[in-house]
Write a protein that binds this DNA or RNA. Sequence first.
DNA 1: TAATGTCTTGTAATCGTTTACTCAACTTTA
DNA 2: TAAAGTTGAGTAAACGATTACAAGACATTA
Lengths: 338, 338
Amino acid sequence: MNKPTIRDVAERAGVSTATVSRALNEPRSVSDELKEEVMEAIEELNYKPSSLAQGLKTNMTNTLALVITDNESPFYAKIMRGVEDVALENDYSLFVSNTDEELKKEKLYLEKLQDKATDGIILAPTGRSNEKLNHLLEFNTPIVFIDRWLEELKDRVDTVLANNLKGSYQAVEYLLQKGHERIGIITGVKQVVSSEERLEGYKKALKDKEISIKDELIVEGSYTIEGGVNALKTLLSLKERPTAVFVTNGKMTMGALKLLREKGYTCPDDLSLVSFDDFEWFSILNPPVTAVRQDSYEIGTKSANLLLKKINSGNNESTESVFRVGTELVIRNSVKKV
Amino acid sequence: MNKPTIRDVAERAGVSTATVSRALNEPRSVSDELKEEVMEAIEELNYKPSSLAQGLKTNMTNTLALVITDNESPFYAKIMRGVEDVALENDYSLFVSNTDEELKKEKLYLEKLQDKATDGIILAPTGRSNEKLNHLLEFNTPIVFIDRWLEELKDRVDTVLANNLKGSYQAVEYLLQKGHERIGIITGVKQVVSSEERLEGYKKALKDKEISIKDELIVEGSYTIEGGVNALKTLLSLKERPTAVFVTNGKMTMGALKLLREKGYTCPDDLSLVSFDDFEWFSILNPPVTAVRQDSYEIGTKSANLLLKKINSGNNESTESVFRVGTELVIRNSVKKV
DNA sequence: TAATGTCTTGTAATCGTTTACTCAACTTTA
DNA sequence: TAAAGTTGAGTAAACGATTACAAGACATTA
């Protein structure tokens, strides 16, 4: 059976297509009798207006896109939830895609989105600028960044992200309170703000306690499990080992814990650990891991609401530009007092 | 700046819109000179054909939809990855939505998809039939089920799912080998095949060893963390406790482990445990959890490929109807010998 | 009663593509 | 050299909605 069109409905109800359209879009302008006839026909045929045709005519598709780096990460999975909930509430559908931190894939997806005529895009940029993004901006597609931003576009695109500096500061401050002074940090992907900010929080906390910052204690883990493993390996091979590490995202924490287990080290006895990102399963680990929780669901809802506001206002200028979402240190048992 | 249309390109290249369209869709039918002119104009304007208009004309949108119950579950997150990878390879975009096991949300999303004119849908049905699904089928939208199916639609819709019975059987067989005889099972959502099959595997393994099946050892956990907690509570409150439990999905395993920790029980000393679903973090738990791994990535790729085949063949009849993906028992340390 | 305004409805153009038809300009063939 | 075939282009009609415009039927007003 073919999908019914507005013409089928019109015919069945004995009215013009204009009347059907009006019955649906501005019900008050149609008489009650006709309205009823129309609705009946719609019901009988299971008619739903074609979004394609509507979109073509109205230039609105009621579609958003979420472009993240990895939907398997609980961090992004929760963000996606937030975005989806807001989208659903406002009757928008959602495209989702993963870039795997690859600029190439980011470009590819943005290009596809250009022609899908998405009403707006929420993007976690991989870090470098790219021409497809500029095309989209030229054509006034509303865009909101999450978790990261691009320096060159900072004044044209709003960003929603956690208060990385504060969260990071709290984590390291906590380690200091517990008596640790030789604290390693495993950092994320270079050129990505969230990563840089977390490093800064670490430095600031140390500085405030007048503890010198040692380059050897700063190791890059590039936000992956493997990276976490290797970075911790490096830290553990230091002549003078750190007594604690601050791991700046959940995936790398997973890697770090894996390595500790393999090497037969126990946490926190041999090494204390605090993680940025708090995953659900942290609480059933042995020991339960102390972590900085960022409210990723809120990053999702906030960015989606922001995007919708832009779409609806038709105003594509950003005013406030950076929106911070709170963090919270969840203290468990992976840090020992020294 | 406004999005350039095919007319803008045609004008700039000094040809008709038909030529532009042909240059893009059947390059051999256009002379090299004109083709070059056209391509140049396209480049200069950053022109991308409007999918909306194309879709309206051709009835193909190059869009798939994935409707799952929970993208935060690693099981579905991996499936999504599989689907996305296949989609990207074939130049399709992907809508994703969560039903939270709610029939109401399932209906809502399916209804939205009807008018978006998605080329095909991959659905993890919540378990009960629904009229929106029937509408879609009436209008010949290709659909593939994953992880579950609906009895009434079994002959009209193909399904891709794990070999639940075998995986389950292996898990319980393993427990039996280790000397356990009083084995509890925490089952999933009722009316859902994957859940029923896992229960059956459990029963079959017991029967084959001529161990009687006790109703009190079968408790429903409805696939949620909370459910896992409560179900295990029930099992532990039995006069005669089981020495092992088989937990039939990863989320409930999380709940079970949570409860054990709270109660101060240790695994496997106080209770052995095997999980259906193998999550990445199982290996860093204490003890690492023995689990049945289902290749969810393959469920994703297989279902997507199947769907694409249906879309391309225009043939919406299902022939084989059920596709099974292998499982594997990953033995770690959560089962002790008795 | 005629003029004016309001309320409903229909007609037809339009959004940006694709594609069935045409047709002119060459090639080929006998 | 004339008939037939091949190529490469353009014209214009869809696809399924929305909406400016027109117009008929009433109600209102002077």
